[in-house]
Amino acid sequence: MKLLSVPLSTLKPGEKSNVVHLDVLGLLRRRILDLGIVPGTVLTCIGKAPAGDPIAYLIRGTVIALRSEDACLIAVEQV
C-alpha cells in the first residue's frame, strides 16, 4: 500500500522518509538536487534549531539544514 506523501517539514526528529517529489523552483531546486536530494533519496530528520527553524536532515551521510518554508516544498513519504 502506498502512503500519502507529506511535506518534509512535518517530519519529527528521528523520523525517516523517502523523497517523492520536489516542488522547489529555480536556484534552490538545483542546490537541492546537487546535494543528492532526488526522488527516492532517504532523508532522516536530525533535529530542529532552538527556535524551531531551520531543520537539520541527514542526507547521504551529511547533515544539511533547510529553512522550514523550503523543506515544506519537498514531498516525502514515511519509511
Binding site: 536556484l27 538545483r30 542546490r31 538536487l33 546537487d34 546535494l35
Partner: peptide, 8 residues
C-alpha cells in the same frame, strides 16, 4: 562547490 551545474 557541490556541483558544476548550478548558477552561483
Amino acid at each position: 562547490t557541490y556541483s558544476l551545474l548550478a548558477h552561483s
